[in-house]
Design a binder for these strands. Structure first.
Lengths: 233, 233
DNA sequence: CTCCCGATGATTGTCAGACAATCTGACAAC
DNA sequence: GTTGTCAGATTGTCTGACAATCATCGGGAG
């Protein structure tokens, strides 16, 4: 169920850290399409013609169709009957919805901070420091974006529920799509390390309510910023 | 973006309320498989052989494969590489996870009761009365189950977020699978109308905290009951 | 007698090609 | 200006096929 997990349940052997890329063609195609969408190579609304794409990727049409079905299920593309699949075009309404969904999921995680596993709490700290290091190192826009979203995902991880995390991943994927569309040309990521560091400090000090309030502001601000830039297309 | 919405943006015409069943073969196949799973016709762990199923349903193998991919994406079936897909077998861990996910989503909805739209609140009341009427009428096990879960979905609807509702639907689907497996033989549904009515009364009176506590007990009890029966298979 | 090993059949993953149904756009007819 | 019709393009679906992989089972080595 979890992609990164080792599937063998051998107790402990000398062959740890060895895992073979057992991905199917469909998975690779889907991954390549996701990458293209997130990197902004495909503008929103672009129709994904089956024959052309299949030929371009060197796979058969049924295989490509399965991959497209995955993308549609993830909300990264939309299918209109008899009209094919095209890259999803985020509208203000869906951005608002994604934002409220994020708020619910991440708030639930933060409220569980005192009862969360030490492992989950450590994951939050690690995600934050990784982000801050990326900022300090002047990492690329793509990497900063990803590490920033990883922080928010780690907050959902505080619930300890794999299903909630996977839901959050799906929602965040839609957000990445919207961000990619907005920043297709001018890709500048503001430094938000301070805000997140403050968030973690509040959690560590036990003031969960204040942290939740801060998160609410943070997400609401992001929502407004995205919608604003989305509407002057 | 919303399924029930008319896709034409004509201002207002005499042709409202007209909609044609535009379902594809893949959708129909997936729906039939879901039904079979929920009715308990397919035991958990049953391998879904592609050729046999395709022939039995009168569709081609690629079409069936797309439908199976949908089921897998919904968590109702699992795919093992080169070994095909089989009906998912709920284990205690996943039931616990489903329960915590439900708790998060439904609690979020209830906490939003005061700010929810009147439409959403009315949906909760309607779902409850529909369930109570079904109980009074001595409806079938299947119908009672569905109406009971509809109440819980309506609680998530209080968030006003379509995405959260669809997440809840996915989670509830897994729960229906587990219930179908448990009650494959003895299908008795306890009358839980009283508990839910009390829940709604608490909400209407404005005591959201008490309602949330009550919901927590309710879900935790259900979780324990399911796991208990699951473990004496 | 037990255990490892290789052949055999079944099943999946993937491909190529084909056809009908439907959509799009343009053009002719009323 | 609306309607009818047609050609091209695209999707939805089917058929048939092939290699890769997996499960089973019988035989030979120890």
């Amino acid at each position: 169920m979890h992609p990164g997990e080792t599937s063998t349940d051998a107790p402990a052997g000398p062959f740890d850290g060895l895992s073979l890329e057992h991905s199917s063609t469909v998975d690779r195609v889907a991954e390549e399409l996701r990458r293209a969408v997130f990197e902004g190579e495909l503008e929103s609304g672009t129709p994904l013609r089956e024959v052309a794409l299949a030929e371009s990727l060197g796979v058969s049409r049924p295989t490509l169709r399965e991959a497209l079905a995955l993308l549609v299920a993830e909300g990264l593309a939309t299918r209109e009957p008899n009209r094919g699949v095209s890259v999803a075009s985020p509208d203000p309404e869906s951005v608002r919805d994604v934002s409220t969904a994020r708020t619910v999921l991440e708030t639930a995680g933060m409220r569980n901070w005192p009862h969360a596993s030490e492992e989950a709490r450590e994951a939050v700290r690690h995600a934050l420091t990784a982000y801050e290091q990326a900022v300090a190192a002047g990492a690329s826009y793509q990497e900063l974006n990803q590490r920033h979203l990883a922080i928010h995902l780690s907050l959902v991880g505080l619930t300890g529920s794999p299903r909630l995390v996977s839901m959050a991943e799906s929602v965040v994927a839609e957000l990445r799509l919207a961000l990619a569309q907005i920043d297709r040309v001018r890709r500048n990521a503001r430094d938000q390390a301070g805000s997140h560091h403050h968030l973690l400090d509040l959690l560590e000090s036990g003031d969960v309510d204040a942290a939740v309030a801060e998160l609410g502001d943070h997400l609401h601000g992001a929502e407004d910023a995205i919608i604003e830039r989305l509407e002057l297309d």
